[in-house]
Write a protein that binds this DNA or RNA. Sequence first.
DNA 1: GCGTGTCCATAAGGAAATCTTATCCACGAA
DNA 2: TTCGTGGATAAGATTTCCTTATGGACACGC
Lengths: 297, 297
Amino acid sequence: MDTRQLAAFCAVVERRSFSQAAERLGVTQPAVSLQIRALEKRLGTQLLDRSGRRVEPTEAGLRLYRGAQRMLALENQLVSELAATAEGELAGDLVLGASTGPAAIVVPVLLGEFQREHSDVRVFLTVSDTHTVIERVADRELELGIVGASRRHRGVRFEPFFSDQVILACPPGHPFAGRTVTLDELREETLILMQEGAGVRQIVEDALRRLGVRLRDLDVRLELGLQESVRRAVEAGFGVTFISRTAVESELADGRLAEARVEGLDATREISLASAVGRTRTRVAESFVEFAKERVS
Amino acid sequence: MDTRQLAAFCAVVERRSFSQAAERLGVTQPAVSLQIRALEKRLGTQLLDRSGRRVEPTEAGLRLYRGAQRMLALENQLVSELAATAEGELAGDLVLGASTGPAAIVVPVLLGEFQREHSDVRVFLTVSDTHTVIERVADRELELGIVGASRRHRGVRFEPFFSDQVILACPPGHPFAGRTVTLDELREETLILMQEGAGVRQIVEDALRRLGVRLRDLDVRLELGLQESVRRAVEAGFGVTFISRTAVESELADGRLAEARVEGLDATREISLASAVGRTRTRVAESFVEFAKERVS
DNA sequence: GCGTGTCCATAAGGAAATCTTATCCACGAA
DNA sequence: TTCGTGGATAAGATTTCCTTATGGACACGC
């Protein structure tokens, strides 16, 4: 018996849908259909009732579901145990996600260096918005998530990863460069923003609100999507923007951008590591976390 | 993960040999070799040390062995449980062995009738000498064995199946037909025997020994291998033979053979059902046993 | 009633995995 | 040195698995 068939079966039972199970498993719907059919044939009994609006497990299906979960848990435990005791190099897959902010800051470099040190490790990073990353971590599709906002989620735990300071970036030689400006000065300047939903934008909104200011009180002329777009626009002289200091460190260093501060505005965010509650971390993931924490500190 | 790979691995660990594991699993040695290699690749660690005279599990291999046994036991339990609760027809494989005596008597008819009643059941019968059948039951290659001698074996339990009376068969019209003859009369007659090792021969030797007679004291002219050969020879008038009454019931009924008895000789044997100690019987096997017991009584 | 969308089953074809046969290599025993 | 045993590996065949495309059933909205 192939445990992949059991995993497919469990996904269908949990989602009550072949299509959604397929999506979760990263295969097509017919593949799941065929897997379940092979399983039903092998066990000689019908496991799912497809006659209704939703797929429902039969009584035999429920029994199998419980046993299958035990088998899959045992398999995971076995594989983890063996990976934990493996002599020599780390090997295996590191499957993680990051929201766009952290993904654009340090995650690629961290992953690249980690993979170079452990050449048998394969790294799979997906970049999505924070909400999607957290959902996929909860669904156990991703082992780790690196996000800039710690949303509350019952099935996900967050641990601090690193702090990210938000600065006001302006073109080199700009009147703001190297200074601390007042809010009144900021009101007279073209402000470029990231799209709604971007972590940095939220952080800035929160900090401004603490000063009794709303974004619409400022001269927001451009809303340019994500971090890379706004960085380029500022570099080209179209305005100023709030942005992660880490994300523009090299631009600051070689003078393509300059840094300013806003009087009374303290905008710092914590980047967190998300993982599914109760999930045993693989040795690969554990090593990466240690490695990464050492590097960002 | 495919539990067949785990089963192959466990067989190698137990047998300390790829070739013997292959034989036990009914595949070739390279198949086992490839399976183990796939498993080692998947788990990223060496599981077996092949450098010595015998294959030895590594430390990781021992850990896997223990976990794999748990997984395989869980799988078997799951499959049995589902088979036990299956609605509708019996389905699955019935894998059994019989020694030559019982195999020639009633087993084919029983299996044929059982299979006709349960068309989704596949029956696999192997016929060997008693010793081999019992060994293969102990090794769990056969779920059931039907044998005429209850050898002691630590890993096998025997339960009574049916009684088989041994008679003296002679050609129709023979002076012995329908009578009880003395040992002296028997000494003057050509006696045809089965080969050494045949169950009936052993039973007869034991019964004669209880009368103080040895086979070599009788006029053994022909030793003709197994049951079918001796039956034919007697039918053709070459002599008389000791044989299972059940095995020649139809010949007795239509007059192709006649039955006699030997004064003071009581030769009956018990046919037993053998199964591996502690092994949970599948629903198919359980049904067959009930069916068969009903038929032979 | 018709059109549209969703979902599962199935057919056909391609890819991957598994297995067998044949052969090679290493090792031990005679 | 020769022979036998046992595991690894190559090449080819077979089986299994998966994807793409499609059909049928059903629900919903117009």
